[in-house]
Structures are given as C-alpha cells and as structure tokens.
C-alpha cells in the first residue's frame, strides 16, 4: 500500500542525483519516520538521530528499492533495523535497559511531561511490542504491513500488539494514579 502519495517521480530524480528531490522525500516521510523512531528509541533525540540515519541509508540505497510506491514502508523497515542495531550497540557498551527509561524531553513545543510518561511506559515493553504498537496502534498500519516492516511472522505481530497494548494500558494507568 502506498503511503504519503506517489513518490515515483521524486525517487527517479533522487536516483539520478537530485538532492532537491531527496529533500522532498524527507519532507514527505520525515514525520512518519521520526514518529516511529521516537517510539522505538530511548528518547526523542535518539529517535530523531535514528530517523536521520535511516534517511542517509535510504539515500545511498535508493537503487535497491524495487517498488517506489512502497517507499514509506521500506524506509520504516530501515528505521526498525537501525533502532535494533543501536540497541545492540548500546548493549555491547554495557548500558542497562533501565537507562532507557531516563527520558528527557528535548523538543520545544512538545508536551514534555506527557512525552516522558509515554516514553517511560514504552520503555517497559519489549522492542518488538514497541515496534508493533507504534506501527499498528499509533501509525495506522495493518498487521500484515507491520509484519513486513518488522520482518516478523503475522502471528507474532498480533501477539506483540495484544500483549503490548495490555501492558501499555496498565503502565499508563499506573502513572495516572
């Protein structure tokens, strides 16, 4: 399914070397990539960094994209891999999972407290649950699309969503009290 409109012309121009065309792709898909990355990462700043890395990777690999109309799902799959690579690197550096919960709001205009509460709750989910919840619940992707982006079996995605939703609900209600 195409998301964000038809990108074929922009992708063709970007492949031909147009920076302007790639910039337009960043404009079109930047929010989706950042939203997904922010829900996967330790904090919004790390999420934005992952999203930028994903765009840079996509820029150099545009030639590998076989279905230009699926640019967004291809990009989100890159975000997912970058987020997981980042987490593995953090693990190698010996950071503890608890550090994930030390969230600091960074963007002006963001409701800092609400963002911290959401990020803290997400931090308590597994990364697969976060990915599935971010795509299907917050991003409006179907389970099948999420399974392709996350490279997981459909049944696993459904299970991650069900468990993640229940856990997230519990955690957010706990924070309200």
């Amino acid at each position: 399914m195409a998301r964000g409109g038809d990108d074929s012309a922009l992708i063709a121009s970007a492949r031909a070397g147009s920076d302007l065309a790639f910039g337009r792709l960043v404009d079109r898909h930047g929010q989706a990539a950042r939203n997904f990355a922010r829900r996967l990462a330790a904090n919004p700043a790390d999420g934005d960094d992952i999203a930028q890395e994903a765009f840079l990777h996509a820029w150099t690999r545009l030639g590998d994209l076989r279905e230009p109309e699926r640019f967004r799902s291809w990009l989100l799959a890159i975000v997912w891999r970058k987020a997981r690579e980042g987490r593995r690197a953090e693990a190698r550096r010996g950071r503890r999972e608890e550090a994930f919960a030390s969230v600091q709001p960074c963007d002006t205009g963001m409701a800092g407290e609400a963002a911290m509460a959401a990020a803290r709750a997400l931090a308590r989910l597994t990364v697969e649950q976060r990915g599935a919840i971010a795509l299907c619940l917050a991003g409006g992707w179907t389970h099948q699309e999420a399974a392709e982006i996350l490279d997981l079996p459909l049944g696993s995605v459904k299970s991650h969503i069900a468990r993640g939703r229940a856990r997230l609900s519990e955690l957010l209600q706990g924070q309200d009290r």
Binding site: D27, Q31, D48, A138, L168
Partner: peptide, 21 residues
C-alpha cells in the same frame, strides 16, 4: 493509548530535520 503515544509525535514539517539529513 493513541492519544498518550501522540505526545511523542514529531512536527508535520521540520526544516531543521531536513537540513540535518
């Protein structure tokens, strides 16, 4: 839940992000 997760949303357009990329 969607409302709560929405607190992490990035702006629809952000020239700084594009410039960074």
């Amino acid at each position: 839940l969607i409302h709560a997760l929405g607190a992490l949303d990035a702006p629809a357009f952000d020239a700084d992000f594009r410039a960074g990329v």
